[in-house]
């Protein structure tokens, strides 16, 4: 059939228009299908979480099975410590890597680093956990906060690198040129001009990485290991919020489920707040 026949045949046109509306309808349906679970998860977690949330949750230790009440204070503090260690490792490396990729993007090494961080961001977190186990747990002969933090740090690197790179690329080239023209050396330009201009973007990126690390569970299973008592020493097993949620969620006890929902709500709330914040900051500045 020649093109002319295809276009002039009215039956054909009807069919093409039908296909057109059908496909567009399907696109709308798939968008709705994608958003539904999000709303469902959010509403369900909020409902079950808020009813279980109280002051005890943030201030008390877990109670043994059978006793009601108790909280996850140790897990919240533990998560804080783990994220702190992770941040100390992941944030500087991530930012430096991002600077290198963005500012020296023509060099071969920068391409290699970019590719490596892209691939690293796809490595399953549980594999990173095994790596941390091999490096830290085996050499210290004990599960520890340090091992958990190490794993989280590695997981933070790609996110921070990516955001830093993108934010630095948004800094106008003329700013760099102006600084260099004034006789400022390259590293000082990068540090005092470029980095400073992009700082709010980078900070939100770091927050994003922290929010993600806060919810990581798999690599902590056999590095931080979990602990049901107060524990702040870095060379001992430590509790973490997502670990506690996992243990409580697969337990058969109704009361533990309620606590787990409260924990899940805290996590999801953190994710939402950070994402809104990131959205807000980046929108005002760059678009």
């Amino acid at each position: 059939m020649t093109a002319e026949k295809v276009f002039k045949n009215p039956a054909n046109l009807k069919r093409r228009k039908f296909v057109n509306s059908l496909m567009i309808f399907l696109c709308v349906v798939s968008s709705v299908l994608t958003i539904l679970p999000l709303l469902y998860i959010f509403i369900y977690t909020t409902q079950s979480g808020i009813s279980a949330l109280n002051i005890d949750f943030f201030t008390k230790l877990p109670k043994p099975v059978g006793e009601t009440g108790g909280g996850m204070a140790n897990a919240i503090v533990g998560s804080g410590i783990l994220i702190g260690i992770g941040g100390l490792i992941g944030i500087p490396i991530g930012i430096l890597g991002g600077i290198y990729i963005a500012e020296y993007s023509k060099s071969f090494l920068a391409g290699v680093i970019k590719f490596t961080t892209d691939v690293l961001s796809g490595v399953p977190s549980i594999v990173v956990g095994i790596f941390a186990y091999g490096v830290v747990v085996l050499s210290m002969q004990s599960f520890s906060a340090l091992a958990g933090g190490f794993a989280l740090g590695i997981l933070m690197i790609p996110t921070v690198t990516k955001i830093t790179e993108e934010m630095l690329k948004l800094v106008p080239q003329s700013l760099r040129e102006a600084s260099l023209a004034l006789g400022v050396s390259r590293w000082k330009t990068t540090l005092k001009v470029v980095l400073k201009t992009a700082s709010s973007g980078i900070i939100t990126g770091v927050l994003l990485a922290i929010a993600r690390a806060a919810g990581e569970t798999a690599p902590l299973l056999f590095t931080a290991f979990g602990n049901s008592f107060w524990q702040t020493r870095l060379d001992q097993p430590i509790a973490a919020l997502p670990l506690q949620i996992f243990v409580y969620a697969i337990s058969p006890y109704e009361d533990w489920h309620r606590q787990a929902w409260a924990g899940a709500f805290v996590l999801i709330f953190l994710v939402f707040v950070v994402n809104f914040l990131v959205r807000f900051v980046t929108r005002n500045k760059y678009s």
Partner: peptide, 10 residues
């Protein structure tokens, strides 16, 4: 961005 533990729980 939702942590996978929450997906599992749900």
């Amino acid at each position: 961005a939702i942590p996978s533990i929450i997906y599992g729980f749900w």
